[in-house]
Amino acid sequence: MRSFRLRPLILPLVIVGAIVLMVLDLAGWLGPTSGLIHTAIRPPALFFTEARRTIGSGIATLRELGELREKNLELQSRVDQLTVENLRLAEVEAENERLRAFLKFAQTNPSFDIRGGQIIARPIGDSASLLTHPIQIDLGTEHGLEQGMPVVTDRGLVGRIARVYPRASDLILITDPRSRVNVMTQASRAQGVLRGRVGQLPIMELIPPEIEISEGEIVITSGLGGHFPKGLVVGQVVEVIRNDNLMFQSAVIRPTVDFDRMELVLVITNFPPAE
């Protein structure tokens, strides 16, 4: 190990190499390399995810047990058994509910060819960078996925596929600052563009000032621009921002999808997104 010595030219060469790498990646020549890295990182990522979940659920269980002990010590062993059993059944029931809801979504939207995928990046994690938050799903080009395809859950729009690898894809959530979605309010039919923000709820901008929108209104995709099908639920208006000095009004939107608890998503594969 100690025999390794930095030669003066190595640092500039590495920097040039990095620039070449960026250019090649932007030209789309490094797709297989990214796919390889995603495949390689999957086992340790799943391991850490499982560990995090186990520890988290262990802590939660211990907390519950502590409260029960205070109430009734003599029933402790019985409560332990019931807690474990309840957790298992709750999980089964929750999964059942989710699948039933997805089935309902598929039945009420028969025109969409949907493909179910288990979110692997939420378990695998966000991103390793502070600056981006893509989420990965366990479907890729091998499953017919393409860049730009809309992703939903039974509760509404999640985002779109940003990059596709053979067996995985990166999603851009509607809360991501890079995301723009053409939306409209369901009751007042006000059109606008939903923009994700850093650390804040997304905002619907470019709303014509003459339209009266109110808090609590449901926001859906407008279908304009051809990036998303029309009518997908996006969220709810929580705050309307009006300013007489501005040409447009805007509204803060709370997404209907709980991105932190999202375990399954649906990819709409038969919707050809506009370039």
Binding site: I19, M22, L24, S34, H38, A128, P134, D170
Partner: peptide, 8 residues
């Protein structure tokens, strides 16, 4: 790669 950034 994990962060969805261009490689490098």
């Amino acid at each position: 790669a994990v962060s969805g950034l261009p490689l490098g």
